[in-house]
Every structure is written in structure tokens, then in C-alpha cells.
Design a protein around this nucleic acid. Structure first.
Lengths: 235, 235
DNA sequence: TCGGCAGCTTGATATAGGTCAATTCATGAC
DNA sequence: GTCATGAATTGACCTATATCAAGCTGCCGA
């Protein structure tokens, strides 16, 4: 499960580390570890202080927020290639979210202080960190606008539209994980999500298990008011 | 209103630029502009592409999100010394929020491309940008947890508690701006905010215009479940 | 093949919070 | 001082969404 990196060939192609001088990258990877984890693994809990910067080599990680009462909501999904919450690592502050692995994935673990030092010393790595942080920040802002400015119907409809755009299939969208999780991501209960999806069948949408058919994108858009400054850009 | 910087004395003390070599800082400031603006000024609209990186020298800026329907909510307040949405500037993407000035303030305007180049070239500036982005990201995460995991009562109560902690007065909190704005920041209507505050009078709280007296912090905390991983740390 | 979960849907009901409207309060202009 | 304006409160009402409670469906393991 824990493998020291013998060949850096894999890590070399990581876009995050691209552009770093070979020497610097060598330095970074000296005591890095490549970790392959199965579905369901918890990478860290909220409240923990980061020991490592995790770099997603393949797969993805879900970031969950938990309340004192035990309620648990999905906040974000991060996909390869990216860093997992560099904000916590660079600030050395406790994680605000738990990280869980929804599919077999591989991560590169870099000691937190090593990572910080490297980011301070290497402008190319610093740029990568800045880029990752900026993108993640903007996603959070979009989500806040989504929550504060929209009804559940709008959130659900726009979620489906954004999904179909991201998947390159204008006539359908396949839900990437359980509806219960998606509901929590959208800030509603699973029951509301189910009902809202059903009610959108009047607006050119058809639910078929995990796949949602979009029979009339025009009508759907009219019902849920997509907005490029809220919905994830297809980038 | 627009003044070229003749003396850099002011900018020199800006913590953001501290640590940069004098030469580099000089370079940055060469075509920077110091801008003093009155209350109410809109610095930029959402949707605009950033021309400048704005650095808050004194005062603050409010970041608002607007819906197509014209609804407008407060998302964040940024205070000196800090950068205004570096995420938009470094990524060169359109602003997701409008920036408005709630008090007479001064900003240093650095051409966006100049700022990007400087951040790429100067590790110290890069670190400052990383720090600012990380802090701002974490604030957004806290806000999302606040919105998704809490009731209005909890949000209002914890807001007051956090305020009083930040202001160093355990027995009171002074609301920093209109209640309508605060309500939108907390994701509710002004009416709900008003009623919720009133209802918390049963939990050791007393409303006195813009100042809220905390007569029984224990009881208030019991009613609203503060959580260090959600509420702004007193840092 | 048969449980037996886990996830989902659906229905009935409750309620938190939104909407609309009227009133008070505070502030600043004149 | 009075008036006008915008903010805040309060009340009555309503609806969107949560909650609670069955069923349903598909899947996995024995």
C-alpha cells in the first residue's frame, strides 16, 4: 500500500511538477511516497493538522464537511491532476474538511514542510500552487453564489446542465455518484433532490436511474436560469 | 482621485510587499497607482476581466454576488492589508463578484500582467499571494459549511459570538454594517435576521440597535453550537 | 433462490423561513 | 423644527423544503 518511489517516471509527467528543474523535482521527491488506495479510504479527518501535501496522480478525492451533530455534506470533488487542499498545507492550519476516496486512486505524498520549502524556493512550483489555489477558491465562490442566490430547482437543473456539458453529451448527463451525496453537495436533502428532479420532467428532463436524459435543453434552461458566473465553466 | 506614487514610503510598509528586494518592489511600483476612494465606490463589476491587482492599503472592500434577477448578496469583506481577489487576477478570468467600498479607503493598483510577472519572478511576493489565497479559500469553505450545516439561529448566534471575539469585547458585539447586508451574508432575509436576533433574547442576548449585548455567553453558545472549524478563528 | 441491505422514491405532514404589507425609527436636508 | 428617505421591526400569511414514515428496487452474499 505504501511504496517508496523508485522510478520518478510517473511523477515526472505530473503537470503540477512540470517545469521544475530536474534537481528541484528530485529534491521534492526524495522522501515522497506514492500511495495507492482503494475506494472508501479516508485520507484525513477534519481538524487534523496536515502532515503531507497530497498530489492526485490518478483518480479523485471528495471533500466533506461534518457538523458537530454528525451531519455530513459533500463540499467538493478534486480530480487528477491537482493538489488536495494546498490551502491547509501552506497555512499549516487544521483541515476544515475530511477527504475520502470515491474510486481507486493514487496519490503522491510530500512531507508538508518539504512541500512548503519547495514552494518557497521554486517559482515554478509556487506558480502551480497559486494556480491550484485560485481555481479552488473560485469554485468555492461559485458554490456560495449557488447556495445563496438560487432555489433548489435552479440548483438541480443547472447541475444537470453543467454535468452534461462537462461530459460532452448535450442530450444526457450521468450522475457521478450517489444521489444522496449530490443532494448534500447542492445543499438539500436527498428527498428534495429526488422530488425536484421529478418535477423537472415538465421541463424537458427525464430521470432514468443514474442517467438523466435532457429532452429539451431550451426548456430546462428556461426553468433553471444558468449563469456562467455561477455554474462551473466547461473548462 | 488618481495619484501616481511619488514616494513609496507608504507602500514600503505594506506587509504584502515586505521582504521583497527594494529593486523588485521598485519594479512593481513603477506603474502602480495609489487610489483613494470614498464610501460607496464600485471598484469593479462581476463579469469584468481584471485590469489591476488591487492591494488594500487602508480601509476595506465588500465582495457581492449578484443573480440574474438582480438579487445581491454579500459574500465577503476584505480588510487591509490584503489583496482583493488575487484568484481572479492570477487566473486572468472574469470576476465572480462585484467589489464595493464601505468606508473611505486607499488601494494600490498594480497592472494585472505586471503583478502576474512579479509573482512569477519574486518568491517572496509569490508566498504572499499564496498566503492570501489560502486564507481566502479557507474563509469560503467555512462559509459553505455554515450555510449547509447550520440553521439560521445557529448562523446568527455564532456570527455574534465571532464578532464579539474579533472585537475583543466578550460582553457585546457591534454590527459592522447594515443588518440587511449581514443578513445576506448569512444567507437569509433581513426579516429573518431581525426575528432570529429577537428570538435569541431568550438565550442571553440583547439587541440595542447596532450593538448586541451578550448577557450570557454560555447560554448563547448552547443555543448556537459554535464550532472552530466553521466560525472565523479570532486570528 | 432467498434474504437482506442500501439507495431511492413517494406520500403525508410539519415547520423554518420567505413574502408582503404596515409601522416605527433614525437620519439628514432644508 | 418638519419633512423625506431608507433601514429596521413586526405581524399575518404562505410556500418551499425538511422531516418522518412506508414502500420499492436492485444488488450482493450465503
Amino acid at each position: 500500500m505504501l511504496d517508496a518511489i523508485t522510478t520518478v517516471s510517473e511523477a515526472e509527467v505530473l503537470p503540477i511538477l512540470a517545469g521544475m528543474s530536474a534537481a528541484r523535482r528530485q529534491d521534492l521527491l526524495a522522501n515522497a511516497i506514492l500511495h495507492s488506495v482503494p475506494t472508501g479510504t479516508v485520507l484525513f479527518e477534519q481538524g487534523e493538522v496536515p502532515n503531507f501535501q497530497l498530489i492526485i496522480v490518478s483518480g479523485s478525492a471528495q471533500l466533506l464537511g461534518k457538523s458537530g451533530a454528525g451531519r455530513e455534506v459533500l463540499i467538493e470533488t478534486v480530480r487528477a491532476p491537482d493538489l488536495i487542499i494546498p490551502a491547509a498545507v501552506v497555512s499549516g492550519a487544521p483541515y476544515l474538511m475530511q477527504a475520502r476516496v470515491p474510486e481507486p486512486s493514487r496519490f503522491l505524498l510530500v512531507q508538508a514542510d518539504v512541500f512548503r520549502d519547495a514552494a518557497a524556493a521554486d517559482p515554478v512550483l509556487a506558480q502551480a500552487v497559486i494556480g491550484s489555489l485560485a481555481t479552488q477558491f473560485r469554485r468555492m465562490v461559485r458554490q456560495i453564489k449557488n447556495l445563496k442566490l438560487r432555489t433548489t430547482t435552479e440548483r438541480v437543473g443547472c447541475y444537470v446542465l453543467a454535468l452534461s456539458a462537462r461530459q460532452g453529451t448535450p442530450d444526457r448527463a450521468v450522475l457521478p455518484y450517489e444521489k444522496t451525496l449530490i443532494a448534500s453537495e447542492l445543499g438539500m436533502t436527498r428527498e428534495s433532490f429526488s422530488r425536484t428532479l421529478a418535477s423537472l420532467e415538465n421541463s424537458g428532463l427525464q430521470v432514468e436511474g443514474q442517467t438523466i436524459l435532457i429532452r429539451d435543453a431550451r426548456s430546462l434552461a428556461a426553468a433553471c436560469h444558468p449563469d456562467p458566473l455561477i455554474d462551473d465553466s466547461p473548462l
